[in-house]
Design a binder for these strands. Structure first.
Lengths: 198, 198
DNA sequence: ACCTGAACACCGTTCAAGT
DNA sequence: ACCTGAACACCGTTCAAGT
């Protein structure tokens, strides 16, 4: 799945080590967040720490390998939405926020990677682009107000995911998302915008 | 300014060391965020690392000493607001967010400390209480909708502060806050709430 | 081509010795 | 009463040696 075919791991043992590291890292990240000890990940995977670094030169590379497919899946979900209902936007942002909460610290890693030239950065850009396009379609449908910035939706979802990543249940996350999306929708009465001039 | 008078530092040199550590830590936190090296803080303050730990047993205690007065100031601002306009809520949350951005990592430190029994935790509780009361007054004025959770306002401000703490200008922060607050206000037309049942 | 783990670097924290 | 800094612990990262 690497972008560059020349970097593909060929040897069977290397492939197995790589997969083991991913499996163990996933468990460790779920348990301790993305700041889990890489030393312990290597140890539990039964490989030397050098092998971990050979496969994943940075912690970010390891995170990317674990979440890239899921990020692409969420981005593709946005592509498939017409943007004709606010509930659609809301549902998609909830999906995004739920994913960003897979590991503690993931939301931060995604925000940090955004706009960098790494593989994870590219995945984030893909996601943000899909989110912006969705908002633009919603604006054309008159569902989201025209003066909203297309980036706001994903930004708010990222923020809320970060705040609520420690929460056991998803109640608060959903309520906050609902409020945030509500703030982007087209208002029914124009006088409510009067305070824009204040 | 410590709560317990028995813990007051008496000796002149100790008082001066304490103040120096605070001054240097403030500079270091502004430059490198709250994760700045404490070793370097002690070194620049001209004291041993043990002295730093004697005055501030944890990093959180150091942060608390630096921001407690400002947190109290922001909380008191909320106490003084009637909650009769959405612009008042918006302005207060902007003040809160701007403060939370004093140091990189401060927003996270505040969220982490909230609901713990530390001095910083108490300061956060005081802030949250003030924020919740402000929202409740706004609800009584019909400015904020009744089904909003009083905690949502401060939560959203904290989230947005975290997301935008790396931003040079405050434009994005203000726009996101505006959208978030908009989602809490009483809507003009009831049919806009129809999707609540979806 | 890949793996190993010792070695290095860095940082936070404690505590025995000192003034 | 307070300060000092060596000592300890822990972790991330590199790289020479090995298969």
């Amino acid at each position: 799945m690497p972008a560059d075919p020349t970097t593909v791991t060929r040897r069977r043992d290397a492939q197995r080590n790589r997969q083991r590291l991913l499996d163990v890292a996933d468990q460790a990240f779920r348990k301790h967040g993305v700041q889990a000890s890489l030393d312990e990940v290597a140890r539990r995977a039964g490989v030397g720490i050098g092998t971990l670094y050979r496969h994943f030169p940075t912690r970010e590379a390891l995170i990317e390998a674990l979440v890239a497919a899921d990020l692409e899946r969420v981005a593709a979900l946005a592509d498939g939405l017409a943007g004709d209902t606010l509930a659609g936007i809301d549902g998609w942002l909830a999906e995004l926020a739920d994913h960003s909460v897979t590991y503690r610290g993931l939301a931060e890693a995604l925000v940090t990677a955004t706009a960098t030239s790494s593989a994870l950065g590219d995945a984030c850009t893909r996601l943000h682009d899909a989110g912006r396009e969705l908002v633009r379609r919603a604006q054309r449908h008159g569902v989201v107000r025209d003066d909203a910035d297309p980036s706001d939706a994903v930004d708010l979802a990222s923020s809320i995911a970060w705040l609520t990543e420690r929460d056991a249940d998803t109640e608060r996350r959903q309520r906050l998302l609902r409020a945030a999306v509500d703030g982007l929708r087209t208002t029914g009465t124009d006088e409510l915008h009067a305070r824009d001039q204040s």
